[in-house]
């Protein structure tokens, strides 16, 4: 599938992984499975086993418009397809107005998934992280146990996962509270200001976070988001 991820398909692939990443946090395991994304050789994007969109329709779905998926699977695999549609709508709702903690966790997880796609497939990002494969990054919200770890996982490339509170990464980004984390995930945080007013606290290997910040800004510019 890696061959199918090009500079043209990467933004939508990152969006698809982000949706899945959000689903993993917000939905049951069974429901999140219905959002596992793939790029098909035809250039279409699929969720689960049977919900398929053309790139154009997928952008419409993300941006909140109505878009028709490939209709034939509604006839041959209606249950699976319908489950994917429902779960996609649930994640869309989270992205539009996250309120519960697990939804904000979902958005953060989704954002980190999207950035990992860029770390693995974007030319500039790959180059920037070429020498960093032995290093790890953690993301946390002060006062909460849930932490995210980004690390290189062999041939799978950079992956985001959970980590224990004992894990000390090469660099750490801590959000001061859940509201800051939400704003960050929504792309509504002024990252320069937030560093000086303690909304975000950076520690450890700062150049690694600098690079990560740069890649995240590239992703933020390119990946379609609800309401954009």
């Amino acid at each position: 599938m890696n061959d199918l991820i090009t500079s043209k398909t990467l933004p939508l692939w990152a969006a698809a992984r982000s949706i899945y990443g959000c689903g993993v946090e917000c939905l049951s395991a069974k429901n999140s499975q219905s959002l596992v994304p793939r790029i098909l050789p035809s250039g279409e994007f699929s969720f689960g086993t049977s919900l398929i969109f053309s790139p154009k329709s997928f952008v419409k779905v993300i941006e909140g418009g109505f878009a028709l998926p490939k209709i034939r699977y509604f006839l041959t695999a209606p249950t699976g397809t319908f489950r994917s549609v429902i779960n996609l709508a649930r994640v869309g709702k989270v992205y539009r107005s996250p309120s519960q903690i697990k939804e904000i966790h979902g958005m953060l997880n989704g954002s980190l998934e999207a950035i990992c796609c860029y770390l693995n497939h974007h030319l500039v990002a790959k180059k920037a992280f070429h020498d960093e494969s032995s290093r790890t990054l953690t993301f946390e919200i002060k006062g909460m146990q849930r932490k995210w770890l980004i690390k290189m996982d062999g041939s799978n490339g950079w992956q985001v996962g959970a980590c224990s509170s004992l894990d000390r990464a090469s660099a750490c980004l801590a959000f001061n509270d859940i509201e800051v984390a939400k704003n960050a995930a929504l792309g509504a945080l002024d990252s320069w200001l937030s560093l000086t007013n303690a909304e975000i606290i950076l520690s450890g290997r700062i150049p690694l976070l600098d690079k990560f910040g740069y890649v995240s800004r590239i992703a933020q510019n390119e990946v379609p988001r609800p309401g954009r």
Binding site: W192, L195, T196, L202, I206
Partner: peptide, 12 residues
């Protein structure tokens, strides 16, 4: 830049 040093401890 604040982020290159100690953004909460050094003056700007």
């Amino acid at each position: 830049a604040p982020g290159a040093g100690l953004p909460l401890d050094f003056p700007h």
